[in-house]
Design a protein around this nucleic acid. Sequence first.
DNA 1: GAGTATCGCTTAACCGGATAAGTAGCGTCA
DNA 2: TGACGCTACTTATCCGGTTAAGCGATACTC
Lengths: 349, 349
Amino acid sequence: MTRRVTIADIAAAAGVSKGAVSYALNGRPGVSETTRTKILAIAAEMGFVPNRAARSLSVSSAQAVGIALRRSARTIGIEPYFMELISGIEATLSAGSFGLTLQIVGTVEEELEVYRRWWAERRVDGVFLCDIGTSDQRLDFIADLGLPAVAVGGPIEGARFPAVWHDDVEPSRDILEYLYTLGHRRVARVAGIPGLLHTAIRDKAYDDTAADLAFESVTTVHSDYTGEQGAQITRRLLSSAKRPTAIVYDNDVMAVAGLGVAHELGLEIPEQLSLVAWDDSQLCRLTHPALTSLTRDIPAYGAKCAEVLMSLIGAATETAPKSTETRAFSVQCKPAQLSPRGSTGPAQT
Amino acid sequence: MTRRVTIADIAAAAGVSKGAVSYALNGRPGVSETTRTKILAIAAEMGFVPNRAARSLSVSSAQAVGIALRRSARTIGIEPYFMELISGIEATLSAGSFGLTLQIVGTVEEELEVYRRWWAERRVDGVFLCDIGTSDQRLDFIADLGLPAVAVGGPIEGARFPAVWHDDVEPSRDILEYLYTLGHRRVARVAGIPGLLHTAIRDKAYDDTAADLAFESVTTVHSDYTGEQGAQITRRLLSSAKRPTAIVYDNDVMAVAGLGVAHELGLEIPEQLSLVAWDDSQLCRLTHPALTSLTRDIPAYGAKCAEVLMSLIGAATETAPKSTETRAFSVQCKPAQLSPRGSTGPAQT
DNA sequence: GAGTATCGCTTAACCGGATAAGTAGCGTCA
DNA sequence: TGACGCTACTTATCCGGTTAAGCGATACTC
């Protein structure tokens, strides 16, 4: 049980004052190079690491950012998305020795309460907002609070803080055109939660694209992103009189569930039914046939989000060195790419 | 942009000193009930939330615990296990208003470094150790540091801190006996990473049980838990001359991958091959047929781990009220239960 | 009625850093 | 040679809580 080393210990060992040690450690003027070198050597030798609370109290910065996820205990694990996102965020944060505080909440009210508490406690310097809604009460709440934030998703009109987002219009068009080219004329989409911004964007993109092509039908059914609903909706779609020859899912979990239902009904994939998943995790490659999906680099996306938040906070990272006084703006990332795999093929005639 | 309220503000508003406010807010003696009530009312009205850094600095407690996960960015998302665990941990922590700091690392060295930094910075009051190995250098490291910790897994002989674990012997036996009863005589197991404690425990349990029953063969192949390896090993197993009639997987992801391979090879499940998954996430119910699996309540497990850590730290939670001076000991949880589903059936004769 | 315990509060020190302000020592220059 | 400026520190204060110690007023004891 080693004792923690404080700057006072270093000061005593070096025969200087606490102040001198602080100047030396922070690379500020006020000490000679000789003294600085000596202090740094002693600090390193003693294994000094500054007490986070003390520093935070002085400089009014928590050296941490937060992310609140609104999911139930049972459903949060199934979507690889969040862990990949967090993983990417971490990669950027670690470079600046920032910590990530994670909180899982059940309702929006709880989520807002968490933000308020984090802010009041100064527990975090900024937050990531996930699952952006079409009209999202969190946006103004956070902005009013003055808590730095980055929206993980967008674009957001008149946003009071930056958003990092992918264009969903182009991929939506890509999917439909791809299916059309394969000869599919009856296409269904199992969409995500209606209130979410990207769901709305995709809804519109599908409608617009569908209007340009001679589909017989392009239907959309909204879901809650769970495998249960994915399976249930697929079962209903495939039992209808004029069943679709292709189904597009707004996430990978539902697509896997849909594939299960297709197997259950004895349908040959892709001969009798083509399936496309949005968001390509390893899940899509576990199945047989592997799922055609829209690939995007989620860890890279998370890293980008973290970069923007860090620059908003004014912290240094490897990719964005410290005092380049450029304000953080919204960033549009590369749209998802269609990765055709075994689950899609020509429509049966 | 509201200003943060400090106890000095409350003191001024109530016409008392900072000290009195502190006593009142913390329910300590030193103020009259009248004054206490008044102070609490003012604090509530002003929306006071204590500055975490200041409190931490005073009381030498971070009011946070940490968890470091050693996975790559790409593979961490796929296993629902961690998110469910974290979700359960959070449920307990929130009750005590503790925060959870998450860090994803690549190597053991990095992980140890994270623990050292957390400890030195006083960023966390305790940590959860996941993926316990058969000889785990982290155990002594953490104990030497004097950082409170709970091992998520066990049992650990001569442990210097508590472990929360499930018995894996009984479920191992359950699986083999179940498959034996179904008439399977050639059983393969795609095990997890060899160095992990629970892998070793299961290895032995399988061997012991197999010795008691008249199996023709019970083979074990170790893997890295990824879907890729799960698929690859399954492909190899099923291509062998005397292929197994049942395969048991040490996690759900590999089982799903194995099912994919079975489909790929045109095998009828469960007629020609029975599959069992260890760790039952929603994944197991997405497939067709649904996977027979070993169910355990991971969120509840996480909650238990958090409880033990909190009592070790000496913090109050709802389930374990404050000063019941019972030392925190290892806890054995209910073993996983076999949930038979469509992926297992009688062996073909 | 003097001594003293108790209550209820204030004062002040402290946690471990950051930092503004003060100062000793030295060189420079008119 | 004394005023000035610079370097290289030290000292002291602050951040916002907690908490030991101090202290006047009241109640209690003998």
